[in-house]
């Protein structure tokens, strides 16, 4: 299995926050979700990986060979987009097209026009252009997506793309990821960050969980769903079940939590329900545990 990015010991020191050391891999040919609460360090890590912010230490290997994110050839291969305020607010589709063309070698104007039409954003060639500031959050995000998808890249890196999108648009975003991956079968990868994975579960292949600036777990979703199990049962068994579980939350009538698969048999013997968790349930469990451990 090839990796599109290998992250080794990346750190960044801010006044009131430290990222790192981060060690992770992003597998090639799949969609990876970087999951964590707000403030966990997802944006900082993504910014560092795309050369938008400098790092204090560590290194990243891209496409198995390149190390220098300031190399224009490498930057051309990566399609980065932030969540809000990516372009200046007074820019229009026309100015975006002009600047994207200058900023990168692989921007396709025809594709941009086609995507703008598909996302119902207008035409970059129109005489009358609408400024980004006048668009809704959702349409602004769609504009950013149209711009970054108009480039022929090998790695798409999106910082919280789903946050400003409604459920219908999130569904469309999932389709866009699949379309992007299928177009160059096996050679393209997607990395996106989110604090809420539920709407994006159907497209996520690999997950990296972050908390307080560190990676707490990572793996292919199918493997994670086998390593961790969702446990729920009645309050009567709570006391016996709790020590076997990794995370635990209970009330007067029932309890629920995540346990390692090694404990599954013991837990089943206590007359509890043990099953594979959804990625959302697993996220809540892992992130809650990280909060408690901190």
């Amino acid at each position: 299995m090839k990796n599109v990015i290998e992250i080794k010991g990346i750190t960044k020191h801010y006044k009131d926050f430290t990222l790192g050391g981060v060690d992770a891999v992003i597998p090639c040919g799949f969609t990876t979700a970087l999951i964590g609460v707000n403030g966990a360090g997802k944006t900082t890590l993504i910014d560092i990986l795309c050369g938008v912010t400098g790092k204090s230490g560590g290194e990243a290997l891209y496409f198995g060979e390149r190390r220098d994110i300031d190399d224009p050839a490498l930057r051309n291969r990566i399609g980065y987009c932030s969540s809000m305020n990516f372009f200046p607010p007074n820019w229009t589709l026309k100015t975006i097209a002009a600047s994207m063309e200058l900023g990168f070698d692989n921007f396709d104007r025809a594709r941009f026009t086609e995507l703008c039409r598909r996302f119902k954003l207008g035409d970059p060639a129109d005489k009358k252009q609408k400024k980004l500031a006048k668009l809704s959050d959702g349409n602004r995000m769609r504009t950013y997506l149209a711009a970054v998808l108009s480039r022929d890249t090998e790695l798409l890196v999106l910082d919280e793309p789903a946050s400003s999108l409604d459920p219908l648009a999130r569904d469309m975003l999932c389709d866009l990821f699949r379309e992007y991956l299928a177009a160059r079968d096996g050679e393209r990868s997607v990395l996106f960050s989110t604090h809420n994975i539920s709407d994006m579960e159907n497209v996520t292949d690999y997950a990296v969980f972050m908390s307080h600036g560190k990676v707490i777990a990572q793996g292919f979703v199918e493997d994670l769903k086998q390593s961790y199990q969702l446990v729920h049962g009645d309050a009567a068994q709570a006391a016996k079940a709790k020590p076997l579980m990794m995370t635990f939350s209970g009330n007067a009538t029932s309890f629920e939590g995540i346990a390692l698969v090694e404990q599954a048999d013991k837990l089943r013997a206590l007359d509890t329900a043990v099953e594979a968790p959804t990625l959302q349930q697993l996220s809540v469990g892992l992130l809650r545990k990280a909060e408690q451990d901190e």
Binding site: D47, C50, G51, V52, T53, P72, R75, N76, I78, Y80, S82, N85, F86, F87, P88, W91, S99, L102, G103, F104, D105
Partner: peptide, 9 residues
């Protein structure tokens, strides 16, 4: 715009 400019080639 700050992040966009910093990500250009």
């Amino acid at each position: 715009g700050g992040k966009f400019f910093r990500s250009t080639k």
